[in-house]
């Protein structure tokens, strides 16, 4: 892959849902590029289509028309059976509700993402310890999610998203469930990862979060209303 080529390319993406017999245009002709190492936020009121856009980019849903390219590969065209491979190799997810597996420890929650990628046990453990240490959770590895604070849980989730060296991290309202102090800490952490070359796309309705990203895309009624560098 050429260094200058964008990590993510979204071209003319549209999604129409049927609500009963009425078509709902959740996304209309959305196009944009994301370069490697960019820290970008997508903002907009609820119903503006930002979550739908995230689902398309994360291969969690299929668009009605248009394409998404990750690392030059058109992921909207891959077969259902190949989607898991792309999800685990190219994309890291961070969710609003952390979505850690409650029965597993912090270490195992990071480990499981690499397990699906068939990484050997020895390498998995090494990588999980390294990532958790990087997140400042060196002493909390053996704790279950219920024994961790919201901020700690989200940091485990970020470590999990990083595990397979994804091309891009897609974060859906990553600060939606934490207090402002924790929010600032998480945003600072994401920013730090970007400075090290990780591409991160954050969907949020929190303007304080959006202001800290270097580029902001504002959505309205399923379209891009503005795309600004800050």
């Amino acid at each position: 892959m050429n260094e200058s080529e964008p990590v993510l390319r979204v071209r003319n993406l549209s999604k129409t849902y049927m609500q009963g017999k009425i078509p709902v245009h959740a996304l209309t002709d959305v196009s944009f590029d994301v370069k490697k190492g960019e820290f970008i936020s997508i903002v907009g009121p609820s119903g503006s289509g930002k979550s739908t856009l995230l689902s398309m980019m994360g291969l969690l849903d299929k668009p009605t028309s248009g394409s998404v390219f990750i690392d030059g590969m058109e992921v909207t065209k891959v077969k259902e059976g190949d989607a898991p491979k792309i999800r685990r190799e190219k994309i890291g997810f961070v969710f609003q509700r952390f979505n850690l597996i409650p029965t597993l420890t912090a270490l195992e929650n990071v480990d499981i993402a690499m397990r699906f990628a068939r990484v050997s046990k020895h390498i998995r453990k090494e990588r999980a310890i390294e990532l958790l240490a990087q997140m400042g959770l060196g002493g909390r590895m053996k704790h279950k999610p219920s024994e961790l604070s919201g901020g700690e849980q989200q940091r485990v989730a970020i470590a999990r998203a990083m595990a397979n060296h994804p091309a891009i991290i897609l974060a859906d309202e990553p600060t939606g469930e934490v207090d402002t102090k924790t929010r600032d800490m998480i945003v600072a952490l994401l920013k730090e990862l970007c400075e090290k070359g990780q591409t991160i796309l954050v969907v949020t309705h929190d303007m304080d979060v959006a202001e800290k990203t270097l580029r902001r895309i504002t959505m309205r009624d399923g379209r891009i209303a503005s795309d600004t560098q800050q």
Binding site: L60, P84, K85, R87, R88, F93, N99, I101, A113
Partner: peptide, 16 residues
């Protein structure tokens, strides 16, 4: 349900 959805998002295959 949510856990399986999450595993799929993490790249788990149907066979896993």
């Amino acid at each position: 349900t949510k856990e399986f959805g999450l595993m799929k998002a993490l790249g788990a295959e149907t066979k896993d």
